[in-house]
Design a protein around this nucleic acid. Structure first.
Length: 541
RNA sequence: GUCUUCGUAGCUCAAUGGAUAGAGCAUCUGCUUGCGGAGCAGAAGGUUGCGCGUUCGAGUCGCGCCGAGGACGCCA
């Protein structure tokens, strides 16, 4: 796959831009062309001329450039000084031919150059069922991973299981209390909710022996409960249609000594010190203004930070990933500088660790926002969401929105809203296209009469389709996954408009053949989008 | 108190520092004897929380207020 159009234009402009900064933009409407650049505004400062004058000079150079003639029909200057590029008809037709011949391989890019990325997401503590917040991370992470792969990265989607630490001890204790019918509403820090007693019931049903000794009993309960919670998480993730490549246990890092070896290393480098019975990591040495943090608690247990440091080293050094990307909930915001400092201390390059934060999902109940809390047993489950609105609507809903949006989820309106979910608008476009093909048994798509296409609606579609590779390239750099959903909706919108006024079947043979090819290409791209987002492409609805 | 995210149409949300701030839902008006009306066309709806600044250009960047969410050394 050669460079995308956008990058080709960028490279050409760069050659004439005298080092000033500029962007390649998509104009707000079709009359202004397919691509544009604001380079003239920057040049006008350097050259002390008006932006229009600079734009004219640039256009003159570009007009002579033979590299552009393959795909650019004309270049125009706007009154303000934007330089607008219009794609050639021949290029648009060639692009459609590529889509039809390459099918789901269309827009496979090589910008990743095989870079190995470990993408870690969800990674919920195994102390309760997955919530709608986890569903957001899962939908986003899965789609981002898919887009990375399409852009030529070697991706491993990973789920980190925090099966070590005080939180799982509390889980075990909660289950034990439920087993003994002790009231846990009084006990602070313990887990509540129906799933705790359900686990206790299961232990009884399986006649699992519970030791008399309180601490031993907790361990038995903990091990059973953690296994149950992990299985429940796997089931929920699977219902959502997300595939993880690896489920990585924190306990394995403790068992094979990777955690303690990091601790020994920090001590030997004088990056850790003892205070108040605990061991502290010198965060302040790496990140100004940050307090040092505990890595070994006064009871001798490793803190989550030490585990996370060992985990990061495992991913980058031991398993050799070029980059580790973690997707965390915004409630872990404060942990980012500590882990970054830890990675630096371990000699991991700064650009090898990225942390993406997603804002939390809030539920609205009776008109009021409620913060979900597993401890309080106050949350909406991923499974309930799926039961209410279905996989496609749920995933599309999350993927429509920017990661930094504080999403509000009104559970009273969940089902009603699911029927209004824009996903059906996009899926309906696909189903419509398939119903056309159904009318012509044994149809083979021909692309030798594309010249017949000339309506405004047809070209609006062709031009939008030509920008798909650019979109994927952009998302793989910006991580703005929601642009993919927006793109699919716009493509569906253009298709629906086309459908109203351009009859496909029953026109003269050449035009019918050309329009069938166009519809086929649209369906191919929609199917690619749906696949990347993890939603279905229904032939009937 | 410190750090951080957000504030855009009645509601839920878009807009890589660019051109006339856009969709869906809700409301109102049309379109079905034409490949699926889960659609299309149109109307109405905005001082982008407030103020100052940077810039040729600010919803977007900076500072200060106001409001909301989140995090603040041995839970993760």
């Amino acid at each position: 796959m050669p460079k995308t159009i956008k990058n080709q234009i960028r490279d050409l402009i760069y050659a004439y831009s005298r080092g000033v900064s500029f962007d390649i933009l998509i104009p707000p409407n079709d009359e202004m062309g397919d691509y544009s650049t604001n380079v003239a505004f920057s040049l006008s400062k350097v050259e002390k001329k008006s932006s229009v004058e600079c734009a004219d000079n640039m256009k003159e150079k570009l007009d002579k450039d033979s590299d552009l003639t393959d795909y650019i029909e004309k270049i125009e200057i706007s009154p303000a000084g934007f330089i607008n590029f219009f794609l050639k008809k021949e290029y648009l037709f060639q692009n459609l031919k590529n889509i039809i011949s390459q099918k789901n391989k269309f827009a496979d890019l090589d910008i990743g150059k095989g870079e190995r990325i470990n993408l870690e997401f969800v990674s919920a503590n195994p102390t309760g069922p997955l919530t709608v917040g986890n569903a957001r991370a899962a939908s986003y992470g899965d789609a981002l991973g898919n887009i990375f792969r399409k852009a030529g990265y070697d991706v491993c989607k990973e789920y980190y299981i925090n099966d070590v630490g005080a939180q799982v001890e509390k889980l075990g204790e909660s289950v034990l209390k439920a087993l003994r019918d002790e009231d846990i509403s009084e006990g602070d820090d313990l887990y509540h909710g129906g799933y705790i007693s359900a686990i206790a019931e299961k232990i009884k049903a399986q006649n699992i022996e519970i030791p008399e000794d309180y601490q031993s009993a907790i361990i038995v309960c903990k091990n059973f409960a953690v296994a149950e919670m992990i299985q429940a998480a796997r089931n929920s993730i699977s219902s959502l249609g997300v595939q993880f490549d690896t489920w990585f246990s924190e306990s394995s890092l403790h068992e094979n000594g990777e955690v303690s070896s990091v601790f020994e290393f920090l001590k030997s480098e004088n990056l850790a010190y003892e205070k108040e019975g605990a061991w502290w990591f010198r965060v302040s040495r790496y990140v100004a203004g940050q307090d040092d943090a505990v890595i070994v608690k006064s009871n001798g247990d490793a803190s989550y930070l030490l585990g996370d440091m060992a985990y990061t080293k495992n991913k980058t050094v031991k398993r050799g990933f070029d980059r580790a990307i973690n997707i965390w909930g915004a409630d872990h915001h404060g942990d980012v500088p500590r882990l970054k400092a830890g990675a630096m201390a371990l000699g991991i390059a700064e650009n090898q660790l990225e942390v993406l934060l997603h804002q939390l999902v809030f539920i609205k109940r009776g008109g009021e926002l409620v913060r979900m809390s597993k401890r309080k047993g106050n949350f909406v489950l991923l499974d309930d969401l799926l039961a209410d609105v279905g996989r496609d609507a749920a995933r599309f809903f999350f993927l429509m929105h920017d990661l930094n949006t504080h999403m509000e989820f009104d559970i009273d309106l969940a089902q009603e809203r699911s029927k209004k979910n824009p996903v059906y608008y996009a899926q309906y476009a696909y189903a419509r296209s398939q119903s056309i093909f159904e009318k012509i048994p044994g149809l083979e798509i021909q692309t030798d009469t594309l010249e017949e296409l000339e309506s405004e609606e047809e070209f609006s579609l062709l031009r939008h389709m030509a920008k798909f590779p650019d979109l994927l390239a952009d998302i793989s750099q910006s991580y703005q996954v929601h642009h993919l959903g927006q793109y699919a909706l716009e493509l569906a919108n253009k298709f629906h408009k086309f459908y109203e006024t351009n009859k496909v079947i029953g026109e003269n043979t050449n035009l019918q053949s050309a329009r069938l090819a166009l519809v086929s290409g649209i369906a191919d791209i929609l199917k690619i989008c749906f696949g990347l987002m993890g939603i279905s492409a229904p032939e009937k609805m």
